[in-house]
């Protein structure tokens, strides 16, 4: 009986499992293996080269640059968009007029595809004809070259990313807020707690499961989402806004070097796995689940 049950379970899992193995696990293993091999071109037979690709990687200044950029990019986008998301969620959850319109407004950037958004923002950021510099021009400030200045390019990408992501995270917080029991807040008010105290002692702790979920997603996105680079900067000027995944793309499809691309991919996978692991193991323990 148990065997038949087991078999049935496996059969039910089979479709999902085979897709996962074919498109996730097998390519991962293959990339891992590939990162230890090299060939002159894609048609030549590859040979085992040990850690050679990794040694080249450690000597590659662009690799270090994209790692550094990715670090700042994550640091710059993740906390801000989560903070904004919470604020927006609290606002549209309160009893004000036109909440649905407001919710829609906040959610709009999420609905738009990244490429579309990037194409619009390309013209926002454009130094002479762009919206931002024209607005600045009205008050007599000569705006900077947002995407063309190596000191500003990455920050400009971050601003757009925050604008795009915050609305998405807001939806999760909004859903979470609506499940919170109103009695808690009534009780707190009876005790004379002010709004900030209520938020700090009740709302925020109760939102922690959502925050963990959003945090993992936001951090992963900081590594996974590079669509806008294709349109806005192509990683330039001089790699000032290059990110790891875009560099992997460049290596694989512009340099046609699938071996080095595999090496970089392994680094990326390990980084992401590590981030998820730390979050789940460390932060998870401090979270109050009901």
């Amino acid at each position: 009986m148990i065997n038949r049950l087991n078999l049935k379970a496996w059969l039910l899992l089979l479709p999902a499992l085979s897709l996962l193995i074919a498109f996730t696990h097998w390519p991962t293993l293959k990339s891992f293996w590939r990162s230890f091999t090299w060939a002159r071109s894609d048609v030549a037979p590859s040979q085992f080269v040990g850690l050679d690709n990794y040694r080249i990687m450690l000597d590659d200044p662009v690799f270090w640059k994209v790692i550094e950029n990715n670090f700042w990019y994550a640091l710059g986008t993740v906390p801000t968009s989560i903070g904004l998301a919470i604020m927006m969620a609290l606002w549209v959850n309160s009893k004000i007029r036109c909440t649905s319109l407001l919710r829609l407004a906040f959610f709009t950037p999420t609905i738009l595809p990244m490429i579309t958004v990037a194409n619009i923002w390309l013209f926002f950021y454009s130094p002479n004809i762009g919206l931002f510099n024209q607005l600045l021009g009205l008050v007599g400030i000569a705006g900077p070259n947002w995407l063309g200045d190596p000191d500003l390019a990455l920050s400009s990408l971050m601003v757009m990313t925050i604008w795009k992501e915050a609305g998405f995270f807001m939806i999760f917080y909004l859903a979470a807020l609506q499940t919170l029991s109103p009695e808690l807040f009534d009780a707190a008010k009876l005790e004379g707690a002010n709004a900030w105290r209520i938020f700090r002692k009740i709302t925020f702790p109760l939102l922690m499961p959502t925050t963990l979920f959003v945090l993992i997603n936001a951090l992963l996105n900081a590594f996974k989402l590079v669509d806008h680079l294709f349109i806005l900067t192509k990683g330039g000027p001089n790699n000032a806004s290059n990110l790891l995944l875009y560099y992997i793309y460049e290596t694989a499809f512009s340099f046609l070097d699938s071996y080095y691309a595999a090496t970089l991919t392994v680094v990326m996978l390990l980084t992401l796995a590590l981030i998820a692991l730390v979050q789940i193991l460390v932060i998870d323990r401090r979270i109050h689940y009901r």
Binding site: L122, F123, N128, I129
Partner: peptide, 12 residues
């Protein structure tokens, strides 16, 4: 202009 001049928006 100093710095980069964007290929994609130059025509505009």
């Amino acid at each position: 202009p100093k710095g980069m001049i964007e290929w994609g928006t130059l025509r505009q």
